[in-house]
Design a protein around this nucleic acid. Structure first.
Lengths: 358, 358
DNA sequence: ATGAAAGCGCTAACAT
DNA sequence: ATGTTAGCGCTTTCAT
């Protein structure tokens, strides 16, 4: 047992097994012989507290190392200044970039982030959503897991009056604000570019069909072909190819066809990379034999040889837009539901993998 | 105004401006004509609540869409099941990997993460630390910002009885647990490998001196040279070179020397990349003219041509180790301070950039 | 300009 | 097996 004196007349006994008890507004009040409410007001610069007491209170608070208990405050005022984030995986470049951009905006507005990852599974997504509701976050922003095909957990969010914003991987099954890129446009301009380079037999590595982002990229692909009067060939479309390994295999399959494609538009940079590796290993020239375009503009695309043409998603900007939307929604919450769709135009970044010397 | 009936005799008036009021244990208690504490106990499977009431309570809770208010619970029990994380930038591959590994372990133990970024500045670091203390997180894990040269904010953490764990960028000015890699060993084996490949004039791109990780990498470099009886040349050591651009410039400077180096060990993959770009642009052969080794084993190192030899930091494993340490510390908190240092051996990943054909 | 009192929703010691 | 009561630390209405 240790007798701990705080240079005041209030003593507390603590022993090594206890954490030093936190200083509260009551401690300050008692010492200053004023009420706790005055302390509370002084600390938050309430207009009709005398400058004198404010000074005294703040000085003592500092001296005692007072740290306000936000948990108590949160309970009392019914908000937490925390926003919940749900992403498939934190360590994926795209997501960590979005989060980074988001953080910079909301942290300046006094919000903190609670981040969870789903590992692409529906169960973890539901679990995370519920945990965030229970934590009484002031809003939730989410990019759907690949495994999510039911959406009732979002109804729960909305029933609890919590602003909900989807980004990138969104769903139209839930009425709510979204920030997405124009994947259709991205796919369209990628394929249009390939056509302009003289490619006529353009294959496509598509992603999981139920994710709108991928079905839109495919639509963009199809639209571009139609617009330029190029026949759509089913054997040139390979579904569910978004990893390096599957890209490698899918490329082998395509190059085994009697009528080989002269270009591949991949819905993911990683599958495009897999294709590139296969092509290089097997003596094909890029872009002369096969031109390549990926999607996402991952950092590596500019570093590999040849550089991989890709569609930039402005990930940081997505985060910033989500943040603005969020701040706007909490400001008006719980007024009438505002649902806004922000659609960001992607940019085609042209590199060697698709630039035929002319 | 809408009259909302919950199929019970308890009515609540809500209008469109209000969020639907949350269901509490008191609501459940009233309906079931039992006490709130019984509801609380039933919900948490207290042993001496009858199976019958448990069933009833849980059923009604489900029907009403009851979501426990964790904030209230947190306030009551004095812990939040939340761990605060402070990193320079979330979107840096290394950090998001550590966080990813960490999350997987602690989320299974029922913990959530509150993530903040410092953007490498001291001020934001202090601010974030204080916010996390106020949020009453159960622990804080941090990798120091490059701008941090004072450490009093960590004393504040410890005075509040909050377990504190450093990872990667740690300091010995604060007594606390750490998880780091053996940077000295990493630097040593990198340089030793270069020597084994026949390199004799090995330059070094060092990082900011006050960050232990970088000074250790440099020590490893120096030790290897000494051990193999190679003279240390000051003009071969360039400080504060950890970005692609500075790496490019530093490489130009080195290659402008009368006596050019035949290898560069960079304390960062990015500066090694900058060097690689300079060398390729200027017709130098890698590794024949200049061999390159980087540090961190960033994903791009295996994708560029030639592949960049690098030191893998086992980032995911660091996260897992930090998590284990954290779970152990909260279990014993606030017992006597345990300070453990976990030092993870890095792995040299040898690729073309340093492999001389023999 | 300040104080008293109530209460946010929960848990836990102490009843019975 | 269940109820009563108190209180975590804060904010806020209503007093004065």
């Amino acid at each position: 047992m240790v007798l701990l004196s705080k240079n005041t007349n209030n003593f507390k006994y603590i022993n090594s097994k206890m954490k030093s008890p936190q200083v509260t507004i009551h401690d300050i009040a008692k010492i200053l012989k004023i009420s706790a409410s005055t302390v509370s007001r002084a600390l938050s610069d309430h207009p009709r507290i005398s400058t004198d007491t404010k000074k005294k209170v703040k000085a003592l608070a500092k001296k005692l190392g007072y740290q306000p208990n936000i948990v108590a405050s949160n309970l009392r005022v019914g908000k937490t200044n925390t926003v919940g984030i749900v992403v498939p995986r934190i360590n994926r470049n795209f997501f960590s970039n979005v989060i980074g951009g988001f953080e910079e905006v909301v942290s300046n507005a006094g919000y903190r982030m609670m981040i969870t990852q789903t590992n692409e599974t529906y169960n973890k997504e539901v679990e995370n959503i519920k945990a965030l509701i229970n934590a009484r976050v002031d809003g939730i922003i989410i990019s759907l897991s690949a495994g999510t095909k039911a959406y009732n957990h979002f109804k729960l969010v909305q029933r609890n009056g919590i602003p909900l914003i989807f980004f990138d991987r969104a769903t139209d099954k839930i009425e709510s604000s979204k920030v997405v890129i124009d994947d259709l446009d991205g796919g369209y301009s990628a394929v249009n570019h390939l056509i302009s380079q003289g490619c006529k037999k353009i294959a496509h590595f598509a992603g999981p069909e139920h994710l709108i982002i991928y079905s839109n990229r495919k639509k963009g692909y199809l639209n571009a072909l139609k617009k330029r009067n190029i026949d759509i060939r089913d054997d040139y479309i390979v579904n569910d190819i978004i990893t390096k390994d599957t890209g490698f295999d899918a490329c082998r399959h395509l190059m085994g066809l009697k009528d080989k494609p002269d270009a591949i538009f991949a819905a993911s940079d990683f599958s495009a990379l897999g294709a590139m590796v296969y092509l290089k290993e097997n003596g094909y020239k890029i872009p002369d034999d096969v031109a390549l375009v990926g999607f996402a503009n991952e950092p590596f695309t500019s570093l590999i040889e040849p550089g991989l043409t890709s569609v930039d998603q402005h990930s940081n900007e997505i985060g910033i837009e989500v943040a603005k939307l969020f701040l706007d929604e909490v400001k008006h919450t719980p007024a009438s539901k505002i649902c806004r769709d922000i659609i960001i135009k992607p940019d085609l970044i042209i590199r060697k993998s698709s630039r035929k010397k002319t």
